[in-house]
């Protein structure tokens, strides 16, 4: 059987909120090392990769590898019934066709069990090679969210450029143009307000803002976001999940015809 008890249940709620509009159905791959998920969006342009390590759970048991086929809208409905401070336990039998979500209130005076039907999903996993990216930028996640939202009101695509000076976001549309530059900034008081740039080579790529906007629904998971870019490769937008792992989004760049 599989069982995972997560003291900070709100993390799972946030993960679902971040991906439920991008991906419809997906397998949660459970093994003794944790829970992993990889799924493409319906237009096959973006890829989501989630890792929740066993060590981040208060209790974790997985007797044999399970692929739990889940409709994310339905799981989101179930998790919305958990309080933000609740402890959430996931349970599934090896041969079962349901998953149980147990919610415990912080002072243990309310225990709720929600059972959700699983589905059979044929999933194709893509191999993501280890890449030495040309540029890696870490910046406040709320800042990235704001920039992407602001640019979306002006254009459909953004050019993201990284030089040793910083990262720039540019767009254009019927009403005009916009260009935002965030400079490397390591002198701020709080580490989470820093913008850092690691660069091997300047890089500039074009992306659809609609997807970048969707990725920023993960902002609540982490105060910082890491953007990794290389010429003619998908951008990686990574939100680290404290003590547990990460939620990564990959987006294919637009290419000149």
């Amino acid at each position: 059987m599989f069982e995972g008890r997560l003291l900070q249940g709100s993390l799972l709620k946030k993960v679902l909120e971040a991906i439920k509009d991008l991906v419809t159905d997906t397998n949660f791959d459970c093994s003794e090392t944790g829970i992993a998920l990889q799924a493409m969006d319906s237009s096959h342009v973006a890829l989501v990769s989630l890792l929740l390590k066993d060590t981040g759970f208060d209790h974790f048991r997985c007797d044999r590898n399970l692929a739990l086929g889940i409709n994310l809208q339905n799981m989101s409905k179930m998790l919305k019934c958990a309080g933000n401070d609740d402890i959430i336990t996931l349970k599934a039998e090896d041969e079962g066709d349901t998953i149980t979500f147990m919610f415990e209130s912080p002072n243990q005076d309310k225990i709720s069990d929600f059972e959700m039907k699983l589905m059979d999903i044929d999933s194709e996993h893509l191999g993501i090679p280890d890449t030495d990216y040309q540029a890696i930028v870490t910046m406040p996640s709320a800042e990235f969210q704001r920039i992407v939202r602001d640019l979306s009101s002006i254009g459909d695509t953004a050019v993201i450029g990284v030089t040793k000076e910083g990262i720039s976001f540019s767009t254009g549309g019927d009403i005009g143009k916009a260009n935002i530059v965030c400079r490397q900034n390591t002198n701020v008081d709080k580490e989470e307000d820093q913008t850092t740039v690691e660069i091997h080579e300047p890089v500039s790529l074009t992306f659809a803002l609609r997807y970048l906007n969707s990725f920023t629904k993960a902002t609540a998971l982490s105060p910082q976001v890491t953007l990794s870019l290389s010429k003619e490769l998908p951008i990686v937008v990574e939100y680290k999940i404290e003590k547990m792992g990460f939620l990564r989004f990959y987006l294919a760049p637009k290419i000149e015809e």
Binding site: H44, H125, G127, T157, P234, Y250, L251, A252, K254, I255
Partner: peptide, 14 residues
């Protein structure tokens, strides 16, 4: 003109 390729163009199936 830009074209939006699929993600599978960059990452092969396992």
């Amino acid at each position: 003109k830009t074209h939006q390729p699929a993600i599978s163009r960059f990452f092969a199936p396992k």
